[in-house]
C-alpha cells in the first residue's frame, strides 16, 4: 500500500511538472500529452485481456501438485513443469525467490529451480503479449527461441557449479 501511494505521489508530481512547463514551452507540454495519450490508448487496449488471463492462470493451475513434481527423478516432465509454472505465475521475480527456495528445500533439483526462475523472469505470458503488441512478433518469437535454450544452459551450468541440491 505504502509503495503504491508513493507511486501515485510521483505520478502527481510528474503531472504538475508537465503543467508547469506549459507557460514557457506550450508545444512541449502538448507533445508530452499527445505521446502519453497514444501509449495509454495502446496499453488500455490490451491490459484488461492480459489481466483476465493472468487471473485465470493463477486460479486454474494447481500449485500444490506442481510442487511435488520438480524433484530429482522428475526428468523432462519436471523441467517442463518448471518452465510452465514460471511462465504462468503472476508477480515480479522477487515474489518467486521464496517459492523457489521452498521448492529447493522440498527436494527440487537446482536445474529445475534455475529454469523456473529464468522462465518466471523472462518468458511470462503477459509480457509476451505486451511485447508482441509493442515490438512485433518477430522480435518476441526470436527472443523466446533464444531465451529457452539459454535458460536450460544456465540451469545445467548452475547444477555443475552448485551441485544437485543446494544446502
Amino acid at each position: 500500500m505504502n509503495k503504491t501511494l508513493r507511486q501515485w505521489f510521483i505520478f502527481i508530481v510528474l503531472v504538475i511538472l508537465v503543467c508547469a512547463i506549459y507557460p514557457f514551452q506550450p508545444e512541449k507540454t502538448v507533445s508530452i500529452l499527445k505521446i502519453s495519450k497514444n501509449y495509454l490508448q495502446e496499453m488500455l487496449g490490451i491490459l484488461p485481456a492480459v489481466l483476465i488471463l493472468l487471473g485465470l492462470l493463477d486460479v486454474w493451475i494447481p500449485k500444490k501438485i506442481v510442487e511435488r513434481t520438480l524433484g530429482e527423478n522428475s526428468g523432462i516432465l519436471g523441467t517442463g513443469i518448471a518452465f510452465l509454472i514460471g511462465t504462468a505465475a503472476a508477480g515480479p521475480l522477487y515474489v518467486a525467490f521464496p517459492i523457489a527456495a521452498s521448492l529447493l528445500k522440498k527436494g527440487a533439483r537446482v536445474f529445475n529451480i534455475a529454469i523456473f526462475l529464468c522462465s518466471w523472469a523472462a518468458i511470462k505470458i503477459p509480457m509476451i503479449m505486451f511485447e508482441t503488441e509493442f515490438l512485433g512478433w518477430q522480435f518476441t518469437v526470436l527472443r523466446l527461441l533464444l531465451t529457452i535454450p539459454s535458460a536450460i544452459l544456465i540451469g545445467l551450468i548452475m547444477e555443475k557449479i552448485i551441485g544437485f541440491k543446494e544446502a
Binding site: T4, Q7, W8, I10, F11, L14, V15, V18, S31, I32, L33, K34, I35, S36, Y39, L40, M43, L47, P48, L51, I52, L54, G55, D58, V59, A90
Partner: peptide, 21 residues
C-alpha cells in the same frame, strides 16, 4: 486477482507513460 493487479499496476503504468512522453 485481475482487479488487484490492475490497481497495483496503475500508478506505475501512468508514471512510465508520462516518462515516455
Amino acid at each position: 486477482i485481475a482487479g488487484k493487479t490492475a490497481l497495483n499496476l496503475m500508478p506505475f503504468l501512468l508514471i512510465i507513460i508520462i516518462v515516455i512522453g
